[in-house]
Design a protein around this nucleic acid. Structure first.
Lengths: 234, 234
DNA sequence: ATATGGGTTATTGGATCCAATTTTCAGACA
DNA sequence: TGTCTGAAAATTGGATCCAATAACCCATAT
């Protein structure tokens, strides 16, 4: 049985978040199907799914359109991520960490320290840190034991630039980025400490603040061309 | 053009949340298509959509299954709703209410007061209050100007019993329910006051607490049979 | 008696066909 | 020249057809 359906969704999602399909672009079924070399059926399903994710908007009788994402929306989504991850941290603290989760979080922290203890960073370092960061956040959401948090974040996570999975950095100012991400790594330590000590409110507050650190408002106003996006595929 | 697609999703969603398709029930495409008198295509799309909403889970090669919703999941979803609506209230307070929004919120409060000033309630009252409640919450989310909040709540809102749109009450203890909902209405007043006075943190805290009030933990442990669900269709 | 293997069946996913509706363009009339 | 009307084209959505694959069952062999 052809099992391309999921692939079509991923390909189209990539083309959207990478900017290959620019914001505002209209997408019809037939040209898209031709482009991907599949029939209209999987494309139709993909369009619906991506519309539900919020990447496309449906124009009645005119197909779909790549959604415009404004900086207001991004900061709104970051704010949402903050409260959701804050909630996850609080619930994880209240519930207590399992042995295994605690060990895995410590592992993340140690590997992060190794990166920043050098005193400088390279692009490769950031790529590696991106994976660690992703894992750290995923572990805490897991540890909260609240599946609704993950569901609620799903939609947000697909918005380009708003996701934890997409670190945005400026390769021309690696020293500044070093300070930024090294600070983020220190915040991870604080969150971890709060989790271990069962300090729910503290964990929540730090995590909420941490959401802003990952994507600072300053970045939003920077020149987009000079930035680089590490978008780890799922 | 046949335009039943959206209807198929709604019908199936109804059958699931109403319990006509009990939790754990397996659903295959062909029997479902026969049942609804449509072809497999719209059913397939509906299954995918409902799976993304979290009402169905996909069993590889075995179709879909109506998802079991545990009380832990419900209270988890209520918690998520709390932080999201809390965020909405804070951002609405920080941003300030528009004239029109303030007027509409006042309208909701006045109509709510009219219901509870009688000193007792009927089932019809609760039905009416359900609409007011829904409108009140929707207005605040709107007023936050943060569309990501709405997106994030979307998934949660489809979980039965966790939604603002579904008030759950016990018609055999209308006096107790009177106290509960009259208290909820008073909380609305406090939220409104905080919003008008631009007290973001206060609005957030009260709203977060208010989420718990709508569906108290006590209710979860009650005998389900004696309760009645008002589920206003969207 | 049980386990394994082959064949049948159930079931999903993609491709194509068909119907319906809207949009758009062109021509005609005011 | 502008506007209105009608027809054609574009496009979506549903139905059906076909292929592929995994589950299931029975038979046979150890």
């Amino acid at each position: 049985m052809p099992r391309e359906g999921q692939a079509v969704i991923s390909i189209l999602r990539d083309k959207i978040v990478s900017g290959e399909f620019p914001a505002g672009q209209r997408l019809a079924e037939i040209p898209t199907a031709d482009l991907l070399g599949v029939s209209r059926t999987p494309v139709r399903i993909a369009f619906r799914a991506l519309a539900q994710e919020g990447l496309l908007i449906k124009l009645p009788r005119r197909g779909y359109q790549v959604r415009e994402v404004t900086t207001e929306e991004i900061s709104g989504a970051v704010e949402v991520r903050g409260v959701l991850e804050g909630l996850a941290a609080r619930q994880a603290a209240e519930k207590g960490l399992s042995q295994s989760t605690q060990a895995q979080l410590e592992q993340c922290l140690m590997q992060g320290d190794a990166i920043f203890n050098k005193g400088y960073i390279t692009e490769d370092d950031l790529e590696q840190y991106n994976l660690l960061n992703k894992q750290f956040h995923a572990l805490i959401i897991q540890a909260s034991g609240n599946p609704a948090i993950q569901s609620a974040m799903q939609i947000n996570e697909h918005l380009p630039f708003a996701s934890v999975n997409a670190l945005l950095f400026n390769p021309e100012q690696l020293d500044r980025e070093f300070r930024r991400f090294s600070f983020a790594n220190m915040q991870h330590h604080v969150v971890f400490e709060a989790l271990v000590n069962r300090q729910g409110a503290r964990a929540e507050a730090v995590m909420k603040e941490h959401a802003h650190a990952t994507l600072s408002q300053v970045e939003l106003n920077d020149n987009a061309d000079s930035r680089k996006l590490i978008n780890s595929a799922e």
